[in-house]
Amino acid sequence: MNQPVPAMIKIAVASGKGGTGKTFVATNIFYSLVKNKISAVLIDCDAEAPNDLSFFKAEPLSSIDVKQLVPVIDTNKCTFCGKCHEYCNYNAIFLLPPVKMIKVIDDLCHGCGACSVACGYGAINERPVILGTVNSYSFYGLSSIIEARTKIGVTSPVPVIKTAIRQAGNSAPIAILDSPPGTSCPFIQTTAASDYVILVTEPTPFGLSDLKQSIYTLRKIKKPFGVIINRAGLGSRDVYRWMEENKIPLLGEIPFDEKIARIYSEGSLLAAEDPVYFDEFFELTNRIGNIIKDQITLALNK
């Protein structure tokens, strides 16, 4: 225990497959923490389809635009030498020297600035374009909800997600990050910024296949993790068998119950609505808390 404990513990809730119940688990854990008088931040990193806010009555605090720079080419200064086109690795500069035509394709630009460096004639300026917003809300006094929201059709939600995580700073002892689905860049950005990852899956062949892929990815970036099986009782026992064989920690199960599905569908929180599940969710949250503490300690001492 020589290493310093991180100021804010970040726990990502993720899944390879969409619709397994990430948002359901993240919002209910956040709620049970807050109700236990532990101030927390909920960061909705599913920037293409953010939904966490609809489960809470939260007070708006601030909204910031996330911007990226794209080049603007001054055709009076441009000599059509083609060096910017050669430097651009995203094919975002279209060039036809014979007819003196040069165009920037904003949608392909990643804002790396290589073209500005390339240009020897001072013909490139850069202007900001908006990729999305990061909206902050306060909830129950000291707790807060931060939402990453991309504009429709942007190339990558990563800059918006990064800004949202940065925005959380160290504002509370614990942060819950609701991750985007899949295992590509946005998933990696969210889980790499976290201390622990809760994977939510369902006992179906699709669920198992995507779980394997998520675990493979988390092992590569060396993140400790555990699994919650949602909609237990549906499907088959294959997920359980595979997890046992591979010694994957099972954090808990949430049964399939039409009542749960209905509460979620209305934009309500299970932990707030149903007294039976209220206790169960608290217990689940505490159990996860203890397992996480052990695993983080283990990871820190490695």
Partner: peptide, 20 residues
């Protein structure tokens, strides 16, 4: 889509992208 508040929100965003 599915009949959840999240489903409806996401349907609106998906429809917008198709209409665009």
């Amino acid at each position: 889509t599915e009949p959840t508040i999240s489903g409806l929100h996401d349907l609106e965003r998906a429809a917008e992208i198709v209409l665009k």
